[in-house]
């Protein structure tokens, strides 16, 4: 089973600490080059009239983004769904396919050269979403930073525990 970060709206206070933690985690933990133009968290704190919670990739088992990608840029690996950026062409199909709105398409300007001299810009696109901080030694940065423990990683084992608890509750309530 794929792992994912679960956000509990009952515990969330909407402080957005997770957004900064996420942006930094994907910026080499550097704050010095951070700005409004360069602030790309892969989760968003969303507030409706009576719900507040972080929304991010659920790492779906039958991931619609992966099914939709025409270029094979979205793959399943190590119990997660990941984007192979080299293959992404920025076609946005995955963003439209995702039922959670968890996929963002970022476009970057990259300098182009001609005959060894700078010559205008190229555009490079990236489909970006939660990668569960796969390469981060301490695990998911948002989970680590959340001051109210409203975020946690759910894996197969935890999922099993949740099921068992619910089943026990169901059988008791059935009596």
């Amino acid at each position: 089973m794929n792992k994912f970060v679960l956000a509990d709206p009952k515990l969330c206070i909407g402080c957005r600490t997770c957004e900064i933690a996420c942006a930094l985690s994907h910026n080499g933990e550097r704050t010095d080059n951070l700005s409004q133009e360069n602030f790309f968290p892969r989760l968003s704190v969303i507030k409706t009239f009576d719900v507040t919670g972080a929304v991010m990739c659920r790492h779906c088992e039958d991931a619609p983004c992966a099914s939709a990608c025409p270029n094979g840029a979205l793959v399943r690996m190590s119990d997660t769904v990941q984007v192979i950026q080299e293959k992404c062409v920025g076609c946005k199909t995955c963003a439209l396919a995702c039922p959670f709105g968890a996929m963002a398409i970022r476009t970057f300007k990259t300098p182009r050269s001609f005959g060894g001299k700078p010559w205008g810009f190229d555009y490079k696109a990236q489909a970006q979403k939660c990668d569960l901080c796969a390469d981060r030694p301490n695990g998911s940065a948002c989970v680590e930073a959340c001051p109210t423990d409203a975020l946690r990683v759910i894996d197969a084992q935890e999922m099993q525990q949740i099921r068992q608890q619910r089943q026990q509750k169901a059988v008791v309530e059935a009596v």
Partner: peptide, 10 residues
């Protein structure tokens, strides 16, 4: 004067 906090709201 903090980069991360300014990135969030300015």
């Amino acid at each position: 004067n903090c980069k991360a906090l300014t990135a969030l709201a300015d």
